[in-house]
Nucleic acid binder design. Structure first.
Lengths: 200, 200, 200, 200
DNA sequence: GATGAATGAGTGTTCATTCAT
DNA sequence: AATGAATGAACACTCATTCAT
């Protein structure tokens, strides 16, 4: 059976933390909030995690591994993968839920300058995601769908930054169309530029 | 303009709040922190503001008006103004301080989904800033330095989003070069595209 | 005015701590107990002391300084002073109160192996008290009331140890006559031995 | 005698309790501490004892019976037995361990004013030990090694009190030589006095 | 016998807020 | 305007105890 036992309650706590974080926000998140979402006692949380910080570190890892799995599952030719990647970052469909996920991440990020461990765990994932995008661009160049002078690392940074910022600003003004609008702009002003035009 | 009496202590409290926020972060910000920075008592804060929230709302306005004044002070031809705008957003020189300002803003933004008043005040400013950038682009088109098919609103959104995201990701991984790198990418992949090429 | 301000509330907290300690014992002593005795809120205790430990350290100092003042006030010729010292240690009269004081001290002592700061503060006082007793014996030898071969330090140790132990055992079996009995034994088997016999 | 089944696990729990008590002290002693020392689960402790208090009562009995057996095993002529008794109370050799035992006892004693059952169990033992010492003195008088005017009960009280107090003060100031010093003083100022001098 | 999950009451501590001065 | 004392609710965390397995 292995040590998959970590899964049962551990996973439920992570999900409860997710819901609690979405509902109350990081600054107001309490162990009681999480316990309420879990419909278990506060004590149980401390039975499984030494402290709130420990629980949140575990939560960061949970959140990021979910996210990493998600983007790793993207298939297809490089240009389609890049589109799909942006699409998933933006999320038109299940707006509510994934928006909440990115908000949760944003809040944790906003805390990272004050918490070394948060920063370390978040940074690791940031690098992975950026490398993934850069790799897509690199594959695209190799396969001839992206122009040879496109810089994979730079494009990756710009794509990620603009999508991140779009979400942040979307949250700020409560305008859910913001990410989609930036996604379009990104396609028009950036992606289009690096695409090899077949008939021009 | 208005009751200038507001100026003296009020301004000092805003500055103290700024320092306290930079040092402790939103989630750990206490009235005592602010009072300590002010070198006055906690009670005084409540004499001037009915509650912590009220003080923070006032702080958002203070922060944004500072920011709005800053970008309003940019002079020169549209393409230079856009460069300068990005430059100030990025800040190469006084990294420490302005970085802190943007972090403070980010934290407040991360809270806005949980606080209607935060959101309203932040949204107002967001719109102003975006309109300012769009106006610069519009002027640039009129003056013939930007291509006629550039969309002012869309470019403004993309510029702001990518700069915002760059800072956020810079904070996440504690990499101060991130915003500068994205700034360059922005110039190369976006601004360059909409510039009217004089001799080509 | 001076910094005697420490006196007002500080003293009341010390007294409340004393009463709470007597009533509940160290192991069950809570900040709430102390607050209840003080008839003030728990928060106030933390306004005056950073932590429970800090409060207890202050309490040790308070207790010991009271005690040191008490024994320093003993007057008269050396042999009478020694008697009076033992008498006060034993206390026949106001049994209840002083017994409680010594119990409080005993509890704190029992904790000292687990708390460096407790130990340091208690040790300082222990030394002072022992030196005081030794000094009495030394004076007695000089003045010819104690035999020249009496060892001041050794006698002081024996006197203090037996009185301390008497109280401890008195507490153990709830027998209030124990200290008095040991006091007598001490006089008969120790003090008598070192007294210079005038006509024998 | 009785249900010998008690022996196996029961004894192991007692020993674990002893170690846990030595390491953490009474005030910080938890069922988890004991379970850790036992290398078994907390639940098991409650299987064997209805409550923590019940376990501690059993522990007092265990501790005292060990102690009583120890002093009962002393052999030889009365004056040697008295010396040996003091020696064992003091313990020069295995300082660490027996010191811990007496500390454990002291802590439990310090609790006895707040716990009737503790007090009763401790008092019973106190009486037994005191009677044992008094009996030694009485035997000594009968056998002519102690002076006829020595009062067995009084001497026993004084010996026990001073040794107890010596240990307490030794713990207080972290001075391990204290008990030995008092032991010497006891011999010189008390035991010597009641010894029948053969050539004088 | 023995465990691990789970609970709930209680702990020290924090903090926005109030108020007399 | 300004303070320091004081409060009360809430917080993270602890722990003896229970119970299904």
């Amino acid at each position: 059976m292995g040590n998959d036992e970590q899964s049962e309650t551990h996973a439920e706590i992570m999900e409860a933390t997710y819901r609690a974080l979405c509902e109350h926000g990081y600054a107001s998140l309490t162990m009681q909030n999480i316990a309420d979402e879990l419909e278990k006692s506060k004590g149980l949380l401390h039975y499984h995690f030494d402290s709130k910080e420990e629980l949140l570190i575990a939560f960061i890892d949970y959140l990021l591994s979910e996210f990493e799995q998600d983007i790793a599952s993207i298939e297809g030719p490089p240009d389609k993968k890049l589109d799909e990647f942006i699409e998933r970052f933006v999320v038109v469909a299940d707006a509510g839920d994934r928006q909440a996920l990115h908000l949760a991440l944003l809040e944790l990020r906003a805390q990272s300058p004050f918490n070394d461990r948060f920063r370390e765990h978040l940074a690791r994932s940031d690098t992975i995601v950026r490398d993934t995008v850069a790799e897509i661009v690199r594959d695209g160049i190799t396969q001839g769908v992206f122009r040879a002078d496109a810089e994979p690392e730079v494009v990756a940074q710009l794509v990620l930054a603009s999508m991140d910022g779009a979400r942040t600003r979307g949250l700020t003004i409560g305008d859910e169309t913001y990410p989609a609008a930036v996604s379009e702009a990104l396609n028009k002003y950036v992606i289009d530029d690096i695409l090899v035009k077949t008939n021009e």
